[in-house]
Design a protein around this nucleic acid. Structure first.
Length: 290
DNA sequence: GGGCCCGCAGGG
DNA sequence: CCCTGCGGGCCC
């Protein structure tokens, strides 16, 4: 289950890993990452298991799975993105999915609880990469930033994260969750049908961990457009074509020819399983007075 | 405190 | 079935 667990609030304490499991907050009893490459990461536990971690409160640098000697807790081999836990965090990054964060008392961070485990709410994976770890082997690391869900598309946005005073409660950065709310099951279905290939330009972006595309709503979500989040209102586009489409630089005719101004760009690539509703195409055109 | 080993749950 | 893991308890 991705996202918040009903009945569990941020800041809630748990005595041990078994109780986290029983509440559904973090299901594995020992592993730090829960999830798969297909679904993304559900949750992570930050409890000092890897010395390359950094916990700045609203920002966490979390080290992936693998390469560690269970006895000495030292890295004895390079980590790999093929490790299922690491691959899950890549999917969370690519799809903008929220990750539950739990802090454990064993972490050295001032943000850690004094005993047991504390659920600290949802974070977003904002970047990832690899570097040489303290023990001389390659580690993969994921930057996570605290997320506050908001319906306000015009929510304040702070590019510079304030430094966290030691011991202070974790201040949450207010962010827009456009990418999160747009990664519904319907968006995923459309992207699966098109295998991440752009319906306008046929680009399929290859990135470490898989392929990438974006779900573009034809009639935009939210006020003032109020488009629905259904497959008939979604296109599978590359990021460039997504920007062009959302800004009205390109649009669709009723015969699904892609237009730029008065010029025909070419036919939209269609899939028989994916029925695009013309009402939304017409709404998109009207928005740009085409 | 550290070392050891037994668990279980999840994922392939 | 296999393997692995940001536990945890017990022993010294």
């Amino acid at each position: 289950m991705i996202g918040e667990i009903p009945g569990v609030t941020s800041g809630q304490m748990f005595p041990n890993r078994r109780s986290l499991h029983d509440a559904g907050v973090h299901r594995p009893l020992q592993a730090g990452i829960c999830g798969t490459s297909r679904t993304g990461a559900e949750s992570i536990v930050v409890s000092g298991g890897y010395k390359d971690d950094e916990d700045h409160g609203t920002v966490i640098v979390y080290t992936g799975h693998g390469g560690r000697d269970p006895q000495s807790e030292k890295q004895i081999a390079d980590q790999s993105l093929a490790d299922p836990g690491n691959a899950a965090l890549v999917t969370s990054y690519l799809e903008g999915l929220p990750v539950r964060v739990i802090r454990g008392a064993q972490s050295q961070s001032p943000n850690a609880p004094s005993a047991g485990y504390r659920y600290d709410g949802l974070y977003s994976v904002t970047s990832f990469g690899s570097r040489m770890g303290n023990d001389g082997f390659r580690v993969w690391q994921f930057r996570l930033e605290a997320l506050v869900l908001t319906d306000q598309s015009s929510a304040p946005y702070s590019e510079n994260l304030p430094l966290q005073p030691e011991g202070a409660p974790i201040q949450r950065r207010l962010v827009t969750t456009q990418r999160v709310v747009r990664n519904t099951g319907f968006a995923r279905q459309v992207k699966t049908w098109h295998r991440d290939q752009c319906q306008v330009c046929d680009t399929r972006l290859i990135v470490p961990g898989g392929t990438y595309s974006e779900a573009a709503h034809i009639q935009a979500l939210g006020a003032p457009h109020h488009g629905p989040d259904i497959v008939g209102n979604i296109l599978c586009l590359c990021p460039n074509c997504h920007v062009l489409f959302d800004s009205g630089a390109i649009y669709l005719r009723d015969d699904f020819v892609v237009m730029a101004g008065n010029s025909e760009i070419g036919p939209l690539r269609l899939d028989p399983r994916h029925h695009i509703r013309l009402a939304f195409v017409q709404n998109h055109r009207a928005r740009w007075r085409y």
